[in-house]
């Protein structure tokens, strides 16, 4: 990324974090059985795929990966027409352990919307939340189960995650004033 911002996480750190998240998810689940990873569009989805690939490497289990769009479930519908994209959850989630995967956890409103969206696809036995970055400032009682990196931020800042699949490179940036380093 050009310009003034310096990456808080680069490609190597992101790869390491993804591997750790994969291990934590499998450890918490006592194996990779019955797991379904569901990535939120846009960037949660490629992250979910990376986590699944990591699990496949050390457990030799192909965990199903779905993608979920939450635009139709947002609590600010009508404030702006948000793009809607097709969701795709390739397996039944009834009775499964679903791990929602997102890039940045902020207010928690996207996760709230994702829970509503997920329930339209079935009744999972349990739902966990994995995020690459937790930047704080929750507005709803939602907490992550698996966190890549905690990055305390000020409200006026914004956190940008860039991934090779969607943005051509890997990097986590904090924009606006100087970053409050963890």
């Amino acid at each position: 990324m050009s310009g003034e911002a310096e990456a808080l996480l680069g490609p190597h750190e992101i790869a390491r974090v993804v591997r750790r998240l994969a291990h934590e998810i499998v450890e918490n689940n006592r194996g990779a059985a019955n797991l379904v990873l569901v990535g939120l569009l846009t960037r949660g989805y490629p992250l979910a795929r990376r986590i699944a690939r990591a699990i496949d490497e050390f457990e030799a289990v192909a965990v199903p990966v779905g993608r979920l769009d939450v635009a139709l479930y947002r609590d600010d519908v009508g404030r702006r027409p948000a793009p809607v994209r097709p969701s795709d959850i390739p397996v039944s989630i009834d009775g499964a352990t679903v791990v929602l995967v997102d890039e940045v956890l902020f207010t928690g409103r996207t996760v709230r919307a994702a829970l509503d969206a997920l329930m339209d696809f079935g009744r999972p036995a349990r739902v966990r939340l994995a995020v690459l970055v937790d930047r704080g400032h929750r507005e709803l009682p939602i907490r992550p189960d698996f966190v890549g990196k905690n990055i305390p931020t000020a409200l006026y800042q914004s956190v940008k995650v860039r991934l090779a699949e969607t943005d051509g490179e890997d990097g986590v940036y904090v924009m606006g004033e100087e970053a409050a380093h963890a």
Binding site: P83, F106, T107, L155, M175
Partner: peptide, 23 residues
């Protein structure tokens, strides 16, 4: 590309989606 967002209120909500070409 990057834009530095001013977020004066606390009800920032989820990441704003990309603008959509509807008017």
């Amino acid at each position: 590309m990057l834009e530095i967002k001013e977020q004066p209120t606390t009800t920032a909500g989820p990441e704003p989606a990309a603008p959509i070409g509807w008017r």
